[in-house]
Design a binder for these strands. Structure first.
Lengths: 161, 161
DNA sequence: TATTGTTATACTCTATAACTATA
DNA sequence: TATAGTTATAGAGTATAACAATA
């Protein structure tokens, strides 16, 4: 699908795809940079970890998987969050190797504050668009597409055993 | 606009806005992380700088402004690109303080390769969506909204002189 | 042995403050 | 003096390899 061979003599797998992707990549990078500059007390990555951990004290391995980062990466950022008082580590009673990351009250407060600031940022950005709902819907669609790919990948990882 | 006071007794500036923003932020961070894991020879930031510099040897101050980073940040990443052979620095004849960052042939090749890989990544992602064109359009709309805000900001910075 | 998480180490991106060279 | 860019230094996020503790 999406063949679009325009006969321009190009060697790449699909010419239009590369240009379209370049545009999309630049936009995502720009959005990320904009988020980095929003003044919450949390870095985007700290926000992301707290948000995922907040949805129920997750064990470290599972968190790292959902964040798509290596285990030592999670350890490092969790260290910072624990030091800042936003999270604490709890040991699993049944299996003492397992560690769960849980939010403290301060962590919940920090998340709420960040959400409020992000909310204002997004409102101001969407105010410059003609159809905010369409934009939001498109992002949800992209998110679902990533869900599908993640699910497929974890099946592939578990299947060929 | 977007008042939506639901009378739930919340204290924040706008309750729905925070939840909606949280979703959007998580999606943008997830997209960025996915991009980081795409195997090009460039980091996303290196890609971004090369892409902007490639559109005509830009002077450093202007590049930093478009990237929304501090000047030393640009210097550091440019160092890495020059060391890798992807870019070179050229001095302005008229004003010897000014430095322009230009792509080498290797730099153009690296960009083309990255674009091809990103192209495949995006194609696979969009293949999981029902309406790819709508998604692409929404991203363009967001980009235009950021353009508007940037233009307004630079006017504000220059105006109150 | 296998698994969970951490330590050791290194590289990139980011920033602020101080500096050099040029205007 | 003012401006363009760099150097010095520091903090956060990322990774791989090696490790300790537990199963």
């Amino acid at each position: 699908m999406i063949e679009e061979r325009t006969g321009s003599g190009e060697t790449g797998p699909d010419e239009g795809a590369a240009e379209r992707a370049a545009r999309v990549v630049m936009i995502v990078l720009r959005l990320f940079r904009a988020l980095e500059r929003v003044d919450t007390d949390l870095t985007p990555q700290q926000y992301r970890i707290l948000k995922l951990a907040g949805a129920g004290g997750e064990r470290s391995a599972r968190l790292a998987e959902r964040l798509a980062v290596a285990k030592p990466t999670l350890t490092a950022t969790a260290d910072a969050l624990v030091a800042a008082g936003y999270a604490r580590r709890e040991t699993e009673p049944g299996d003492r190797r397992v560690v769960r990351l849980c939010l403290t009250d301060a962590g919940h407060s920090a998340l709420a504050r960040a959400d409020a600031v992000y909310g204002q940022w997004l409102d101001e950005l969407l105010a410059e668009t003609s159809d905010p709902d369409q934009v939001l819907h498109a992002l949800d669609v992209l998110n679902q597409a990533m869900d599908v790919r993640r699910a497929r990948r974890s099946v592939a990882a578990a299947g060929p055993a």
